[in-house]
C-alpha cells in the first residue's frame, strides 16, 4: 500500500519548535552575534570576524582553565566509574537490603547542586565544620580555602560523593539484566571471578556504562555550582574551571565578545565528545545485531 505523505503533521511539531527557538536557538544566536562583533554599548555592533576566537585560542588563561577542567573530569571519571562498578557488583541483589541500598544511593542525586556545595562548604570549614575541625584536631594540616591541593581534594571527594551513585545505579541495572544462565554456564566452565567480570558482566553492562561515562563527562565538564559555592574558584585560580572562568569573564569583567567566543568553543568541545560517544554507541549496537 502506498502511504500518502501528510505534511500537515509538521504543524504538530510547531509548538516544540517555537519553545526550542526561544529557549535555545535565539539565545545561542545572540551569543554568536557577540562572538563575531564588538560593541561599546548602545546596541551598536562592529564586525570583528574571528578576532575574539583568535584571542581566546591564544589566551593563556583559557588554556589553564581548560587544563584544570580536563584534569578534574579525568580524575573524577577515573574514580567514579571503577568505584561505581565495584559498588554495583557488591550490592545485595534483591530483598529489603537491595531496596535500602537503592534508596540510600539515590539520595545524593536528589540534592540540589548548590545545597551539595553548601553542605560540603560547611562540612569542611576548619572553624566549625565537622570534617575540617576534626582534621585540625587530629593535627592534619587541611584548609581548602588557602591550599590548592586541599581545595582540589575537597571538590573531588564532593563530586564522588554526589555522583558515584549514578554510575553505580546504572551498572546495577545492567547487571540485573544478565540471565542466571550465564553465571551457571560460567560455573560449569570453571570460570574465575575475574573472567566472569571480564567476559560476562563487563560486556553486558558496557551499554549502560557508556551512557554513565557520557553523562558524567558532560556534567563534570560543565561543573559550576558546587565549586562556585565551595571555593569560588580559589585559592587564586586553582579551582577555576571553564564555567567559572566563563562567568567571571562575561559577568565579572563584562568582556562579552571574548566570553561569547569562549562559550561557543566550549559548546563545540562538548558537542564533539558527545558525538564521538554517540557514534561508538551506534556502531556497537549495529555490531551486536
Amino acid at each position: 500500500m502506498e502511504k500518502r505523505q501528510n505534511n500537515k503533521a509538521w504543524l504538530l511539531v510547531l509548538p516544540v519548535l517555537i519553545l526550542v527557538a526561544f529557549s535555545a536557538v535565539i539565545p545561542l544566536m545572540t551569543v554568536v552575534n557577540y562572538a563575531f562583533n564588538d560593541t561599546f554599548g548602545n546596541n551598536q555592533f562592529f564586525w570583528n570576524g574571528l578576532g575574539w576566537f583568535e584571542e581566546m585560542v591564544r589566551s593563556e588563561r583559557l588554556h589553564a582553565a581548560l587544563g584544570r577542567q580536563i584534569l578534574f573530569t579525568g580524575i573524577i571519571l577515573l574514580i567514579e566509574v571503577p568505584l561505581g562498578i565495584f559498588i554495583a557488583l557488591h550490592m545485595p541483589k534483591k530483598g529489603f537490603w537491595a531496596s535500602l541500598c537503592l534508596v540510600l544511593m539515590a539520595l545524593p542525586l536528589l540534592i540540589p547542586f548548590n545545597v551539595v556545595g553548601t553542605i560540603w562548604q560547611i562540612f569542611c570549614r576548619i572553624d566549625i565544620g565537622l570534617l575540617g575541625r576534626g582534621m585540625a584536631e587530629l593535627g592534619v594540616d587541611y584548609n581548602y580555602t588557602n591550599d590548592a591541593f586541599d581545595a582540589w581534594l575537597t571538590l573531588i571527594v564532593m563530586d564522588v560523593w554526589h555522583w558515584t551513585s549514578l554510575v553505580a545505579l546504572l551498572c546495577f541495572a545492567g547487571l540485573r539484566s544478565i540471565p542466571d544462565a550465564f553465571y551457571q554456564a560460567a560455573r560449569i566452565d570453571q570460570s574465575s571471578r575475574w573472567d566472569i567480570f571480564r567476559h560476562i558482566e563487563l560486556p553486558k553492562m558496557s551499554g549502560v556504562l557508556l551512557i554513565a561515562v557520557l553523562l558524567r563527562f558532560i556534567d563534570s565538564f560543565m561543573i559550576y555550582t558546587e565549586p562556585f559555592v565551595v571555593t569560588g574558584g580559589g585559592p587564586g585560580n586553582a579551582t577555576t574551571f571553564l564555567s567559572i572562568d566563563l562567568v567571571k569573564m562575561a559577568i565579572g569583567q563584562f568582556d562579552l565578545g571574548p566570553a561569547a567566543a569562549f562559550s561557543l568553543m566550549y559548546f563545540l568541545i562538548i558537542l564533539l565528545v558527545s558525538w564521538v560517544f554517540y557514534t561508538v554507541m551506534v556502531s556497537r549496537d549495529e555490531g551486536a545485531q
Binding site: 544462565a181 554456564a185 571480564r198 563487563l202
Partner: peptide, 13 residues
C-alpha cells in the same frame, strides 16, 4: 557436566 541453556550462552568478547 555440561549444560545447554534455553538462551544461548556465549562469551561475547
Amino acid at each position: 557436566i555440561a549444560q545447554v541453556f534455553q538462551f544461548p550462552v556465549v562469551y561475547d568478547t
